[in-house]
Design a protein around this nucleic acid. Structure first.
Lengths: 337, 337
DNA sequence: TCTTTTTGTTGAAACGTTTCAACAATATAC
DNA sequence: GTATATTGTTGAAACGTTTCAACAAAAAGA
């Protein structure tokens, strides 16, 4: 950066005080200020290409109009779509967003939130990794306004906007059962994250409600770090055990992607031999010969609500808002009876 | 935010001047400062959970350690992947990134760059829309360091990192010709953006080099705003005209996605009746029954070089660096002879 | 005419840092 | 013993804003 047209410079050129310049340029005390003086100041400002220094402004006003966004990985379509929605909602209120990816890593996550605090963000929207309770409590204690998205922590009474994952998984399994499937498997992550546990829970609940005994081996878990081979093993185990499944619920777009690619190489016909339903809408699965049925998350609402709740908090301190959104099951070819 | 532990507070508690606290906490004048005093200051700081106010620091030092990233759309996998790479490269040097999506809209783009300047970013990485020359010149004139990515403007002598699009398209067409295809079409965008014009150029060059007459109707253009139906029409026109093509080059992941989905509904067999090659690696096309051959962009290099060049500029003013990266063609089933 | 109100403007302090220039106290050199 | 260098520390100004409190001049009310 180079230019340094400050209020002072304008004031000098216009022959007035910086105070007056500040008032005029911020449309304050409009009824007090002489129209002509105001016009002159504006003109000088324009002519000098004045550009307010938001850093200085922030220091004084203690407001940065910046919100920090921590996702697991911005290159994951789920999060980049969410980021886009948040960006738009934020910009509408003149906020901008700085972001960071935690890779589901607690240390990275904490580093990011710390950095954001140092940078005096007005608030944050975060998708914290496993075991982040302590850091989240720290944020609370530091009184940084924040809203958790996508996941939540039962032990913490903080604001969040999540999917009703239990219900979502249950919907999926019910749908499979309605389609005549009886031996339903699931592939999910080996993690303590509650929202994923909920997916497992919903799965089990649905089976239970239909008096289907849930075979121990039917729910396979894979590492949350990108582990393609583990997913393939899981698929293999589900399909070629003593009690092979006739349907699988895939707990994320990442899992679905690799599972389907692998299934595509096997002599298994979808939906004839095997029905599939996955979480998250994902374009990548549209071109599979049997387009995947999926659980659609209301991303738009999630992002917009997160911003709305956050900005609300900035104004008035209110009771925690905890939103659990319903998913919509979109049945397609992969789970046709 | 709530706490206000400033240098002054620490100074008082430790019984020294703020100057000294600043020196200690920034590891300055280490050889001058008494070890014990230093230790004491550090201890007080720790105990009070001191957190440097980066806004104040920035105001004083005129450095924000922030870089602005303007992409066309953060939810587009191409840009979100790039963003992730840029994030990582930036964070390694202690910068953070603020981002915005322009939607290929000049006005939005200008608003974003203006905002970023007001916020005193140290530099920017931008993917400008069509007709952004003037705004880019303005940035230059304002002496904001910036690097253009993905696209470029022949009339401007600024830093950029782009793909060698002409070569990339030529590679693709050559590959198709090598595979025995003779009537090769292309679907690209109706835009003045030079990098896309280059794709068209490479396509034509390759045809010309093989003395293949390029039928006027073989190169179809669609609006750059998301226009699924236009893409379908283009596919239709290419396949069901008097001179149907036997291969199509698809100029972006977005175009490829919709084209392939549409082709999937037609009685056309890939690669038997029709060969396909597209730009950008895109997971979504892996599951098509004939996985798509694609032109792989060196995203990693693009992002890292952009940051490297930018940070370099922040230190020393150098000659413009203009990098044109080679693409790698990845042949798969969709273009098998 | 004298008060009171309104209009228009300003100086100065503050936000939390960094950093220059200065100083006192001690140590070293002659 | 004085001169010089070194060590350890500090006050104050500055970065570009905002905003309070004050004031002068003009207008209105008596």
């Amino acid at each position: 950066m180079a230019r340094k047209v400050s209020l002072k410079v304008i004031a000098q050129k216009a022959g007035v005080s910086t105070t007056l310049v500040s008032y005029v340029l911020n449309n304050q005390k409009v009824n007090r200020i002489n129209k002509q003086t105001a016009e002159k100041i504006r003109q000088v400002a324009r002519q000098l290409h004045y550009r307010a220094n938001l850093v200085a402004k922030s220091l004084k006003t203690n407001k940065t109009f910046t919100i920090g966004l921590v996702v697991a990985d911005i290159s994951n379509p789920f999060f980049s779509s969410l980021a886009r929605i948040i960006e738009d909602a934020a910009e509408e209120k003149n906020y901008i967003v700085i972001f960071g990816s935690s890779d589901e890593n607690l240390e990275k996550f904490s580093r990011l939130t710390d950095t954001f605090m140092n940078r005096q963000v007005d608030g944050m929207i975060i998708a914290p990794p496993e075991n982040a309770e302590q850091q989240i409590e720290y944020l609370e204690q530091q009184q940084v306004p924040f809203v958790v998205v996508d996941r939540y922590f039962p032990s913490l009474n903080v604001d969040y906007v999540v999917l009703d994952n239990t219900d979502a998984a249950r919907q999926a399994v019910n749908h499979l059962i309605d389609g005549g499937r009886k031996r339903i498997g699931m592939i999910t992550y080996r993690t303590g994250l509650k929202h994923l546990a909920d997916r497992r829970l919903g799965y089990k609940k649905a089976l239970h409600e239909h008096s289907i005994h849930c075979n121990e081996g039917w729910c396979r878990e894979v590492g949350i770090g990108n582990s393609k081979s583990e997913i393939e093993e899981a698929v293999h185990a589900l399909l070629f055990s003593a009690e092979p499944v006739d349907a699988i619920l895939l707990a994320s777009n990442y899992i679905a992607n690799h599972a389907v690619k692998y299934i595509n190489t096997l002599p298994v016909k979808v939906p004839l031999d095997l029905a599939l339903v996955c979480f998250d809408e994902t374009e990548s699965l549209d071109l599979f010969y049997a387009p995947l049925s999926y659980i659609e998350q209301p991303l738009e609402v999630m992002g917009q609500e997160a911003i709305r709740i956050l900005l609300n908090k900035l104004e008035k301190k209110e009771e925690p808002v905890q939103l659990s959104l319903k998913a919509k099951l979109v049945p397609r070819e992969s789970s046709r009876p």
